[in-house]
Amino acid sequence: MYNLALRLMADPHEAEDVLQETFISAFRALPRFEGRSQLGTWLYRIAYNAALMRLRKRRVRTESLDEPGVAEGVDLAPRQFTDWTALPDKLLLRRELRDSLNAALLTLPESLRGVFVLRDIEGLSTAETAAALALTETNVKVRLHRARLALREKLSAYFASGAPSAGSHKELVSHAM
């Protein structure tokens, strides 16, 4: 729940507020919870709606700020062909690289980000994600695929640009010795 709120709001304090609102709303609505969905999915849905309400209030127009290629219906043909898969996982524990994962995620429009967070970070199934976000399963799959392709482009561009630097590698080796 916290991850979804954090990724949507891009602000730890607002994510915390969303989390509080979610549980307060859930406690109030619990007597009316009919059990047609799983409790966890229901909570995700409340959190998602709470985050969207806040985003609307903030008048954040994330989608309009996105680069071409990320929005739905636009060509997503790969443009980055750098193979960075051999990068040691130890390097990825560095804050710098984790920050790059977070930054890439924030470039996605909310409609793709919510699906990606629930499916690939929170580990919900397609059906659970569809229920939580009030989408069809087909729509979840399409959005997830677009999100993954967009993130792959971002990370590939990041790694192709030379990050992590040679200094980072040297530092890692010196730590390991």
């Binding site: 991850n3 990825l92 524990l93 994962l101 995620l105 690939d120 929170e122 993954r148 590939s156």
Partner: peptide, 17 residues
């Protein structure tokens, strides 16, 4: 790289409250 992208987020994408 698509597979690795998904793996990275699954492994490192989770932020604890």
């Amino acid at each position: 790289t698509l597979q690795k992208t998904v793996l990275l987020y699954r492994t490192y994408g989770h932020e604890e409250i």
